[in-house]
Design a protein around this nucleic acid. Structure first.
Length: 811
RNA sequence: GCCGCCGUGGUGGAAUUGGCAGACGCGCCGGACUCAAAAUCCGGUGGUAGCGAUACCGUGUCGGUUCGACUCCGACCGGCGGCACCA
């Protein structure tokens, strides 16, 4: 078969007959399959795209043949830094490059032969899309979920922009590897922390890889503990700390504030005040990468102020140290050197007392379960006193006195969304000298991204230099005003695209509520695991926020999620241009056709594992397709030599194999175990050849099996299956056929082979009636000379019989 | 340091979830067809010993549970991923 031309022929057929479009009339049987959309940064589909999209398409086609009305859309995540950086480097415009890349990638995706519904295509960089991203921003703003604050942010000096916490990897920019620095800036944030608890809880409701859920759980970082207030001497306010170790309260020897924490400590001496100011100045310049290293030596200064221990009333010195983070908990912690490694290191350096907490003896203390003994020691005990009851007792005691209580904290921070870059969705906010930040009215959307902008980076937002863009009027008073010069993080664009797809041409709304409620959640979402704490978390947050505003009525965007593995270079390293180990899929597609190539990808690699690239055996799948073609066509032509007499054991055997294959392939498709599904089909083809070689071969039956095989194969090699379907006289597309269903009766055999063990050692196998009970099996085993010999005349004391599998005789 | 995942032939990977380890391929060896090669087809292929039926060993290492462990439990070794001064 000329696989390359067969590709073209059927791609054209599907296109002309509009085979892949979702039919809303059958929405009651909808199945929404979605792949993480590509980023059109390069001009070509790479191997990673193929490994994600081709097997996913096989899954979608399998679902379609199983009776679902499959909706499989495709689009482009088109805004973002790589396109802008490429444009800067080459002196071109990101819009021109991106649109060109989209055209090329779309054509390649069509050539792949995946059944995308191109009528629902979207691209984030088009005003018809980003208009609604801006709408989304305004809804969050109205709801108080988008807010501005001056805050320390992660600044990448190479990308010249702020990046989110999620985009900082090992203290460096996820994209370019430049160490991130702290910078105080006024930025827009989305209040994802409002949903911390629900985002955590609802993980239990969704069918996602456990690994991914764990990553999100850790990222959200729920921590149960206590807030405890240490009164400031001579005042009625105090310092509130957060701790998970309230049981060690009696061991506190100092209290620490984060340097950025603004607490007025009136009683500092001039020397102390100077020291504090110097320390604050010094630490504010330290970058996060320095500050967040656990190996870093702990530093701090004494403020000169004291607070009072909430139980003992003792005077406790107040320190400032940057090992205490201003962004977590209350920005203050209690120092218990005897029970915390970090506190011990600090106390050791500054010669602060180490007080070990032990269980109080009877009569020593009748209010609390623990009391402290002063111990001066160079090695901290760090013993685990913590018990839920002790903590509860202390919390109750503090609560009664109004000095604290139970508190839950989250590690999750609000999502910073402002980017000082050009190629993104403009932020629909106007600054009026009189009215401050004013949202652009929805009727004025989109705020269009101007084309003619000098986007060469110089540390400021490029749009700021575009006067025609910046100068506008205040929507409230009509007087001159300025636009927000920043653009939105591209993750905002991708946080809602699953809602746009089903309703992609709606010019009145971002999406229609009824349509969204009918089509969502996405039934199967397929993409890389690298987005676990970014896109996959943001999309969940946006879904919940839109639900609370009444725009949709479901809680989670992606009911079921699958990650494909990563295909590495032949050297076992991640593919990269620098390393020169990039494999171009086109070479294989042009030589063997897209079906053979996707089949190879699915057969060679476990879908969720991936692995190092190798083309060893790529020809074997071509051989497999050739074998299929030969047996299918031969059985079709020879079918007139039908035997038509009684059913032979050979027929039954082939029927068994066929049905076993059908059952396995269906299960394997559900589990994305495409490699084993293909192995089962290879077994079936081998069985067909064996059957054909036998003189009892009934070609009419073989033709039937061939037809079933073609259907079975269709999701895996759609073009070849169409061609075979047609060559065998089939009408229309093979995808209009139902996927084969297993006939359970064919799987019932009269006789089965079971293993026989003597004292758990394999000694042979015997054939028994498939419904044989233990006694029958035992009798048959004892009639077998080899088994009798192995027993050697000993008495059988016990037998373990697993029907259809094994008999274990204990002697 | 903490959390999670994974270690199976020469090789990619299977194993109905505690029941015949190595499915299906690749590679290799042998054979058929051929003047020859390619293609195709047939057979073999975990290791050790033996002509042989067969025996023993074998899923990172060492223990344990069980009639029975790649699978469950414990300790360790090696690899990967995530988090990392979050109190």
């Amino acid at each position: 078969m000329d696989y390359v031309n067969v590709d073209k022929k059927w791609n054209a057929y599907w296109e002309n007959n509009r085979c892949h479009l979702f039919n809303p009339k059958h929405a009651d049987k909808k199945y929404y399959v979605m792949e993480m959309w590509p980023y059109p940064s390069g001009a070509n589909l790479h191997l990673g795209h193929w490994f994600n999209f081709a097997p996913s398409d096989t899954f979608a086609r399998y679902k379609k043949m199983s009776g679902y009305e499959v909706f499989q859309p495709m689009g482009f995540d088109a805004f973002g830094l790589p396109a802008e950086n490429f444009a800067i480097k080459t002196g071109t415009h990101p819009k021109d490059n991106t649109l060109k890349n989209i055209t090329t990638m779309e054509r390649q995706l069509r050539d792949m032969g995946a059944m995308y519904d191109w009528d629902h295509e979207v691209s984030t960089c088009l005003p018809e899309y980003y208009r609604w991203t801006q709408w989304l921003f305004l809804q969050l703003y109205k709801k108080g979920l988008a807010y501005q604050k001056k805050a320390p942010v992660n600044w990448c000096s190479s990308c010249n922009t702020v990046i989110a916490n999620e985009q900082v990897v090992d203290g460096a920019c996820e994209r370019c590897g430049t160490p991130v620095v702290r910078k105080e800036m006024t930025q827009w944030f989305f209040k994802i922390t409002d949903y911390a608890d629900e985002l955590l809880r609802d993980l239990d409701k969704i069918d996602w890889p456990e690994k991914t859920k764990t990553m999100q759980r850790n990222w959200i970082g729920r921590s149960e503990g206590s807030e405890i207030t240490f009164a400031l001497e001579g005042r009625n306010d105090g310092i509130t700390v957060f701790t998970t170790r309230a049981d060690t309260l009696m061991g506190v020897s100092y209290v620490v504030l984060a340097p950025e924490k603004d607490i007025v400590l009136e009683i500092t001496t001039p020397e102390c005040r100077a020291a504090v100011e110097a320390y604050r100045e010094e630490t504010s310049r330290a970058s996060d990468i320095d500050r967040l290293s656990s190996a870093r030596e702990k530093t701090g200064v004494f403020t000169g102020a004291y607070c009072l221990h909430p139980v003992s009333g003792q005077k406790i010195p107040v320190w400032i140290a940057d090992y205490c983070l201003g962004t977590y908990g209350t920005g203050a912690v209690m120092g218990v050197p005897a029970h915390d490694e970090r506190d011990f290191a600090f106390a050791h350096k500054y010669r602060l007392p180490v007080k070990r907490v032990i269980r109080a003896a009877n009569g020593e203390d009748d209010t609390l379960p623990y009391c402290a003994y002063g111990v001066t020691t160079d090695s901290a005990p760090f013993d685990g006193l913590a018990s839920a009851e002790a903590i509860a007792t202390i919390q109750a005691h503090l609560a009664k006195e109004g000095k604290g209580g139970k508190k839950i904290n989250y590690r999750l921070r609000d999502w910073s969304v402002s980017r000082q870059r050009y190629w993104g969705t403009p932020i629909p906010i106007v600054y009026c000298p009189e009215h401050g930040a004013v949202p652009v009215p929805e009727k004025d959307l989109p705020v269009e991204l101007p084309y003619g902008v000098n986007f060469t980076p110089d540390g400021a937002s490029p749009l700021r230099k575009c006067e025609t863009y910046m100068n506008t009027v205040c929507p409230v008073c009509g007087k001159p005003a300025r636009r927000d010069p920043d653009t939105l993080d591209t993750f905002v664009c991708s946080s809602w695209y699953f809602l746009r797809y089903p309703d992609s041409h709606n010019t009145q709304k971002a999406f229609d509520t009824a349509t969204a409620d009918k089509m969502l959640p996405v039934d199967k979402y397929i993409g890389g695991a690298e987005h676990a704490c970014m896109h996959l978390l943001y999309a969940r947050f946006i879904t919940k926020a839109l639900r609370d505003m009444g725009y949709i009525h479901f809680d989670e965007p992606f009911a079921s999620l699958v990650h494909q593995g990563l295909i590495l270079g032949p050297d076992g390293f991640k593919m990269s241009k620098n390393r020169g180990n990039v494999i171009n899929p086109d070479v294989y597609v042009n030589e063997y056709g897209s079906d053979a190539f996707r089949l190879y990808l699915m057969f060679r690699f476990a879908f969720t594992e991936g692995g190092a690239w190798s083309d060893d055996g790529v020809k074997s799948v071509v051989k497999f397709l050739d074998r299929i073609e030969r047996v299918v066509l031969k059985s079709h032509e020879a079918a007139k030599k039908s035997r038509k007499d009684a059913i032979t054991p050979q027929d039954k055997e082939l029927a068994y194999t066929l049905n076993y294959t059908v059952k396995s392939v269906r299960q394997d498709c559900e589990n994305f175990s495409f490699n084993t599904a293909i192995a089962r089909m290879m077994e079936l083809v081998n069985a067909m050849y064996k059957y054909e070689a036998d003189k009892a071969c009934d070609y009419a039956y073989l033709r039937y099996v061939s037809q079933e095989l073609v259907k079975l194969l269709a999701p895996f090699c759609p073009h070849v299956a169409e061609e075979l379907h047609e060559l065998c006289g089939g009408k229309g597309t093979v995808f209009a056929q139902s996927y084969p269903v297993c006939d359970e009766h064919a799987l019932v055999r009269d006789q089965v082979e079971i293993a026989v063990q003597i004292c758990s050692k394999m000694k042979g196998r015997i054939s028994v009636p498939s419904d044989a009970d233990e006694e029958t099996a035992k009798a048959l085993a004892l009639a077998d000379p080899a088994i009798v010999a192995a027993i050697g005349g000993a008495a059988v004391k016990k037998a373990i019989y697993i029907r259809g599998r094994l008999l274990n005789l204990i002697v």
